[in-house]
């Protein structure tokens, strides 16, 4: 049986805005296994982004617990979570979130440099070559197209060889051609690197390529089905 990378128990997330309490996630119990390609699907506002940010250690649940590689990360402080985000997980955002003052190469190198990896530059250059951005390595984010930004962000998420990569609507800000390219790239990296991939999308085409699809509605898991082979 494959190793469990992520496991949640009775996960709940509530936001309080002024007097108003809004439950975003409730009773989330799931397991994600090593090497899986899982799509989290659901309509806008169903809680996909919140779920991914909690699973990746960027956000914390209101109640319940998350185990990452068997370790409970629920009560960890920001600084305790730092190495988890740096090494164990990678995140690809819909809005790219590249550091604007760093070049494409520096953005990719950054997580590796944080862990003082002497091979940071070599690894970053190799990744950029692989995604066809070698020529654009010295460009700043504002000089890159949407597709280029997302490819850079994917390289950044992969540089420390995380056990699991989360991608939140990675094609949401891209045109259809670039979207196809990004999905191909993620799928290819998943195949070749054997990285666990959790991808939030409401695109049926992308969901169709996943090993498993988790459907969220109003913060609850309504379906945990298998996807079709790509």
């Amino acid at each position: 049986m494959a190793e469990i990378i992520v496991e949640t128990r009775d996960l709940e997330k509530v936001y309080t805005i002024g007097e108003r309490r809004q439950q975003i996630l409730k009773d989330i119990n799931l397991q994600i296994f090593a090497g899986e390609f899982v799509v989290v699907s659901g309509s806008s506002g169903s809680g996909k982004t919140t779920l991914l940010s909690i699973l990746s250690g960027i956000d914390r649940p209101t109640s319940g617990s998350i185990l990452l590689s068997g370790r409970d990360i629920t009560g960890m402080s920001e600084d305790e979570l730092a190495p988890v985000r740096n090494v164990e997980t990678g995140f690809v955002f819909q809005a790219f979130h590249l550091v604007p003052s760093l070049t494409a190469l520096e953005n990719v190198m950054f997580p590796a440099e944080l862990r003082r990896d002497p091979q940071a530059r070599v690894k970053a250059e190799e990744l950029l070559r692989r995604v066809g951005l070698w020529e654009r390595r010295s460009s700043y984010p504002q000089q890159l197209s949407g597709g280029e930004k997302q490819r850079t962000a994917i390289c950044r998420a992969l540089i420390n060889h995380p056990k699991i990569v989360f991608a939140d609507e990675p094609t949401g800000n891209l045109d259809s051609e670039n979207s196809r390219g990004i999905v191909e790239l993620l799928a290819e990296l998943h195949r070749e690197e054997k990285t666990t991939l959790v991808l939030a999308t409401h695109s049926p085409e992308i969901a169709a390529r996943a090993d498993r699809v988790i459907v969220l509605r109003d913060g609850c898991i309504v379906e945990k089905g298998e996807g079709a082979d790509a």
Partner: peptide, 12 residues
């Protein structure tokens, strides 16, 4: 910038 650094694994 501070948030990006943290998301990518930087401590405070």
């Amino acid at each position: 910038e501070a948030v990006y650094y943290k998301v990518l694994g930087a401590r405070s």
